[in-house]
């Protein structure tokens, strides 16, 4: 494992921890899109089906279980916890996220590394992850005041994606036969979606003002 991959996994882990911290200690999910969290729960459930068929490493298994467990529990908290669910910006979080799923499924049926159930699900999870952040970005844009934890959550997620791109470049040059077009293209699309947010985040950080996205 190279440093970019490890740093990418760690920023991903931290993003989840930041979100759980917000939910557990502040008992608030204000500014967090349930739509995006539901998509992530579906992304990890469909991608990690190979937990049952392939063993890669203890690290890999533990991380998969963490991402599965945390994404499902975040959805549960936002939907059912009697305090947390009251802070959910239901009226602002109106992105019709289920409409993203059908095109991703069709694309996965057409473009996959192998036409088997696990491979189609794997490709589906990659396509869906690429667009899963959209409801969150729309919600951020609608929310006037973005609190620090929410801003940091999205920043960490974006950093995780950018580090994975560096990891692919590194692996391409250091490993034989390491070519994965599906992962790369969907990963790059996903990273580009964060570019706008990054821009405004660093502007607000540089000028030391509260993060606000233009309407």
């Amino acid at each position: 494992m190279n440093i970019f991959r490890l740093a990418g996994d760690m920023t991903h882990l931290f993003s989840v921890l930041v979100l759980l911290l917000k939910i557990h200690t502040i008992k608030s999910c204000a500014g967090i899109s349930l739509k995006t969290q539901e998509l992530y729960a579906i992304v990890f459930t469909t991608r990690y089906l190979d937990l049952f068929t392939t063993y890669i490493s203890l690290y890999n298994t533990i991380m998969k279980l963490i991402f599965l467990g945390s994404s499902i529990s975040i959805v549960w908290y936002m939907r059912h916890h009697k305090v947390v669910r009251r802070s959910y910006d239901k009226d602002q979080d109106t992105f019709r996220h289920y409409l993203l799923m059908l095109p991703c499924l069709l694309l996965a049926l057409l473009i996959n590394e192998k036409f088997t159930f696990l491979e189609v699900m794997w490709a589906f999870s990659l396509y869906l992850e690429a667009v899963a952040i959209l409801p969150q970005l729309v919600l951020l844009q609608r929310t006037r005041n973005i609190d620090n934890l929410t801003g940091q959550y999205v920043l960490l997620l974006g950093a995780y994606r950018a580090l994975y791109v560096l990891n692919w470049i590194y692996r391409y040059f250091t490993e034989e036969n390491y070519v994965h077009w599906i992962t790369w293209v969907s990963g790059i699309v996903q990273t580009l979606l964060y570019a706008d947010f990054f821009y405004y985040y660093f502007q607000s950080w540089k000028n030391n003002v509260k993060l606000q996205l233009p309407a």
């Binding site: 392939t54 994975y164 994965h180 599906i182």
Partner: peptide, 10 residues
């Protein structure tokens, strides 16, 4: 022997 695939990533 098949090389490990992208599936070793998360």
């Amino acid at each position: 022997q098949e090389k490990p695939r992208s599936h070793d990533e998360l």
